[in-house]
């Protein structure tokens, strides 16, 4: 219970301080505040994909249906957060580059991530038998995750980029972020991650209960 209070007050503090402190970037100005929210969303979208892959591996090794429920729950929240990251990034792109979408490598990567999540759920709905659905979806999740290193390391070399991420988390990280900005940013990252893990836990429990109801009804 105590951690929920910390989470609530932490998220409230992040939201308040992200608006009352000076804008993190002088040239872009007020709009640059979106980075306190956009980067945590993108980070969670990738974290969720990694979790879905780990639980998929665990399912294939143990064949326990709970691992499949965990993989699916991680992915369903990942879909939500990658959507939020895409939308917030697109708004930011409109303000800084002048158009909502221009196939920058980062935009491409998040779009492919969205497509993978979509394909994963399309596959799940197309298989009726539970065990078969679980193993096919697990194989696809692991296989699709293997494209992530290519999206991160190969795509930016082939396609030219305008994205500011390279200056935020790149080598000159210390020059672009002051102490206050860094504090709010990492607090936002941490609290949103905890929020994701809480939502993940709830989705898993709902998944287990839902399965139990289906089983009882079919008896």
């Amino acid at each position: 219970m105590w951690w929920k209070i910390i989470l609530l007050s932490g998220l409230a503090a992040v939201i308040v301080f992200s608006f009352i402190t000076p804008a993190p970037q002088n040239i872009i100005g007020e709009a640059s505040r979106i980075f306190y929210y956009h980067i945590p969303m993108a980070w969670i979208a990738v974290l969720a994909f990694a979790l879905a892959m780990i639980y998929s591996i665990r399912y294939l090794r143990s064949k326990k249906i709970i691992e499949d429920i965990r993989a699916r729950s991680a992915a369903s929240l990942g879909l939500l957060f990658s959507f939020l990251a895409t939308v917030s990034g697109s708004i930011f792109a409109r303000v800084t580059w002048g158009s909502f979408w221009n196939w920058d490598p980062r935009e491409t990567s998040i779009f492919i991530l969205l497509l993978i999540y979509g394909a994963y759920f399309a596959l799940r709905t197309a298989v009726a038998v539970e065990e078969k659905r679980a193993s096919l979806a697990a194989v696809y999740a692991i296989f699709a995750f293997l494209t992530v290193p290519f999206l991160v390391f190969v795509v930016p070399r082939v396609v030219p980029s305008l994205h500011p991420a390279d200056s935020v988390i790149g080598a000159d990280f210390k020059f672009t972020m002051g102490t206050t900005v860094r504090l709010i940013f990492f607090a936002s990252l941490a609290f949103f991650t905890v929020l994701y893990l809480w939502l993940f836990n709830l989705t898993c429990r709902v998944g287990v209960l839902y399965r139990k109801i289906i089983e009882e009804e079919s008896l």
Binding site: T108, I112, L115, I116, G118, A119, A122, L123, Y140, F143, A144, T147, F150, L151, V154, V155, V158, V159
Partner: peptide, 13 residues
């Protein structure tokens, strides 16, 4: 639908 996200990097290259 399942192939495209995986093939995307390949097609780009």
């Amino acid at each position: 639908v399942l192939s495209f996200p995986i093939l995307f990097v390949l097609l780009l290259l």
